[in-house]
Amino acid sequence: MARETRSLICINCPLGCPLEVVVDGGEVLSVTGNTCKRGETYGRKEVTNPTRIVTSSVPVVGSAIGRMVSVKTASDIPKEKIFDVMAALEGVQMTAPVEIGDVVVADVAGTGVDVVATRRA
C-alpha cells in the first residue's frame, strides 16, 4: 500500500491540535502537529483503531435527583461499537442509591469495558 498522509484534529482536549499522520500500509510512520504526548497517541490510534467514550443517561428508580442518572463507558471503546453500546443500554434501569463509578452494564457489547454511573443518585 502506498504511503498516505492523513489530516486529523486531535480530540483529546479542547486545544484541537491539527495532526498530520503519515501511514504506510498498516504502519504509522509519523505524527506531527501535536502539542503533547497524548496527541501522538491519539493520532496513531485514530488511523489504526479509532475509539470513543460513549455517554448517556438511564432511568433510575427512587432517587432524589430525578428520573435519570448519567453513565459512561469506563474507558474508550471501538468507534464502530458506539451504537451497540447504546443498544445495550436500552431497557437498563438503576435503583437508588447509585454511586459514581457503580457498574451499570458490565463488559458492554463485548468490548470488555463496563458502563459506569457518572452521578450519585
Binding site: C13, P14, T55, I100, T118
Partner: peptide, 19 residues
Amino acid sequence: CIHNGFGLHTFKEELTGPE
C-alpha cells in the same frame, strides 16, 4: 452536560460534567 471532556486541565483526567 453528561458528555466527557471536562477537567483535563484541572484534574489531568477526562471527566463528564456530573463527575
